[in-house]
């Protein structure tokens, strides 16, 4: 049994149908804590103590956000800057997060094929996520491939619902320890584990 902390960051959730559905899906899974950062800290004054306590209480850290300019919305960066303190998350004394698992859950407007070396975005999602990968590494966490919802601009209603139920399956898989971490690490996206 493992616990999952979803650090959700969307500055305009009221405009994102896909993310609203994804959030709905995650709320019915046991041992999942949703931490809605823009709702908690509308003025960006992050409560560092609270955030560190939440991190200590969970095994999986999911950074759930839309992809903005090939990275996350500003709140995620603010969160990293303030919460992952030297001497706590990293550095010689910073061992608080050792062994925890971290991954990104992202929605992108562009289709999957745009994120190829030959596509118009020229880099893959994994390449864009290098800073997160390295952050996890420096904090002695295990970084897992992302769960990605591509092409949100053109998603039909049934497709959105399919992604939402995939997200739910992913969370169930993580909380009930049914994931083979070694196998998972070799995947491009965690979505691949869920195509049944």
């Amino acid at each position: 049994m493992s616990s999952v902390l979803i650090l959700f960051a969307h500055p305009a959730l009221e405009k994102s149908r896909t993310n609203r559905l994804l959030l709905e899906a995650c709320q019915s899974v046991d041992r999942v804590t949703l931490n809605d950062l823009y709702q908690e800290y509308p003025d960006f004054d992050i409560d560092v103590d609270r955030e560190q306590r939440l991190l200590l209480e969970h095994d999986y850290i999911l950074l759930h956000h839309p992809m903005y300019w090939y990275s996350s919305p500003a709140m995620v960066k603010q969160w990293e800057d303030l919460v992952l303190e030297h001497g706590w998350a990293y550095g010689r004394e910073g061992k608080a997060l050792v062994g925890k698992k971290m991954l990104n859950v992202m929605t992108t407007g562009g289709p999957r094929k745009a994120y190829e070396e030959v596509g118009y975005n020229r880099f893959t999602i994994r390449q864009f996520l290098a800073p997160f990968d390295q952050t996890a590494y420096l904090c002695n966490m295990i970084y897992l491939p992302p769960f990605v919802v591509h092409g949100t601009h053109r998603l039909s209603e049934p497709e959105m619902h399919r992604y939402a139920s995939q997200y739910k399956s992913l969370l169930t898989m993580l909380t009930t320890d049914q994931i083979d971490l070694e196998d998972a690490k070799t995947r491009r996206y965690l979505n691949e584990l869920l195509i049944d």
């Binding site: 560092v48 800057d81 001497g87």
Partner: peptide
């Protein structure tokens, strides 16, 4: 003081 630790490079 609290909030500024993350932005404070002193300990690093």
């Amino acid at each position: 003081k609290d909030i500024e630790d993350g932005w404070d490079p002193e300990s690093l």
